[in-house]
Design a protein around this nucleic acid. Structure first.
Lengths: 244, 244
DNA sequence: ACGCATTTGTTCGTATGTATT
DNA sequence: TAATACATACGAACAAATGCG
């Protein structure tokens, strides 16, 4: 007969600390790639033991918000490093070769969001979004056609020139220039037939089977900040996934 | 100029303990669904502190080999529970409804493995395998056509009758009747066109886009024990994936 | 090349809280 | 209510990696 609240009010101390650290990350107190204070410093700051801070950091490291490096410190995760480049891009060539990929931006325009886009981004239909269309090339051949929708309020100043000028992963640009950090995403994958618009861009026959990948990316606090819809030509590549 | 061994010989104590626990799991000392000894008992058995046992169990629980339940004990993970039923089946209906699924076994025969199958299962081409073909129905409509290849040596006595008689997930049958426990899997996903064989079974037009999912499942020690190739009709369902 | 300080990683011990039976 | 088991929290000590002087 005891009341069981849906959202428990009393969290263990280490989880409260994890929440405070997350709030500091969200607030920009520590920048991506930089070290956060040492465990002993944080313990003093929050008036808890080092072990409690350790457990809080363990959680955030498991969620890929932080990266621990023995002897050096604990660092804010970043998309700007080579290591994390394939954390969100799961398409790999069938022969396992490490191809370098290039890209081309086809379009970048502001627009009113469709109902679907507005719902995915959790914004009112009256709030403008930016739509970006791009092609990814593996070894010179087009393999991925991506459409991105971004809330304009978070990405003021993003233009095709800015996109084309930046080297490196898009999420690196987002976190560096706009302070928007992607920390997780949900994808919906299905097989579709290439339509008249996509087929020539991907250089496949109309009706050819393509992988459709819809992704909503989230920042701190599970706030959606990007909707992405990709069409993958999987003739010589596949989407790799690990179940555990 | 110091030698850096590829496989470090000296592992931390908690990881050695995790290895010993895994060996006991592999050896069948504790059965799926059953509780393993308490942390204090294990600490006494291995002559280490409770904290070290905790950290070892933490690792194995994170890898879904064990499940902790406060106040009750730590249990060997099992595929026989409703909760874990969708750990390996990632296909969900677009409308989010919780449909019940049924199935039908079309075939079950022993055969020599193709080169591809033998390589995936890491067995010699001379060692026979079992091939199983089945259909999964969501709400009465065929949605998944699966082919499974299993090493005959591990699944002696598996017949279409045994398969049809068993209620519940296939991996539950495998662990209960054959002592083979799937603990992780690698999938390769692509879009393909329905061929003349698959199209009528899935009740789609020939050439219709289908999701192709190739899976290799592993048991303890990363030993592959199943190859599976599924064709999913994603007209009203999608493959759900979480990136983090 | 060496030693030292710093930081995270490992291990132990103890006490208390919470969930289950 | 009591016993058991996992969960939380603190403290201490040493190991291992790193970087600096």
């Amino acid at each position: 007969m005891s009341a069981v609240p849906d959202t428990p009010l009393f969290q263990p101390l280490y989880r409260q600390i994890a929440g405070l650290i997350t709030k500091s990350l969200d607030g920009g107190e520590w920048q991506p790639g930089q070290a956060i204070p040492s465990e002993l410093e944080l313990a003093a700051r929050y008036k808890v033991s080092q072990g409690t801070v350790r457990k809080a950091i363990d959680e955030l490291a498991a969620a890929n918000l932080l990266i621990r490096r023995q002897g050096k410190g604990t660092f804010v995760a970043t998309h700007a490093e080579e290591q994390s480049r394939f954390r969100f891009l799961r398409l790999v060539p069938d022969d396992g070769s490490a191809e370098r990929l290039s890209r081309k931006f086809l379009d970048c325009k502001r627009m009113r969001p469709s109902a679907e886009v507005a719902q995915a981004l959790d914004i009112p239909g009256s709030q403008a979004v930016l739509q970006v269309r791009r092609l990814l090339y593996f070894r010179g051949a087009p393999v991925v056609l991506d459409d991105l929708w971004l809330p304009l309020s978070l990405f003021k100043g993003l233009t095709e020139q800015v996109l084309s000028a930046y080297e490196g992963p898009l999420y690196g640009l987002f976190e560096k220039e706009f302070g928007v950090r992607m920390i997780r995403a949900e994808e919906q994958i299905r097989a579709v037939a290439a339509d008249a618009q996509a087929a020539p861009l991907l250089e496949v026959a109309p009706g050819a089977p393509l992988l459709s990948v819809s992704r909503v990316s989230f920042t701190y606090g599970d706030r959606p900040v990007e909707l992405r819809r990709g069409l993958y030509d999987t003739a010589h590549h596949h989407y790799r996934n690990r179940l555990s």
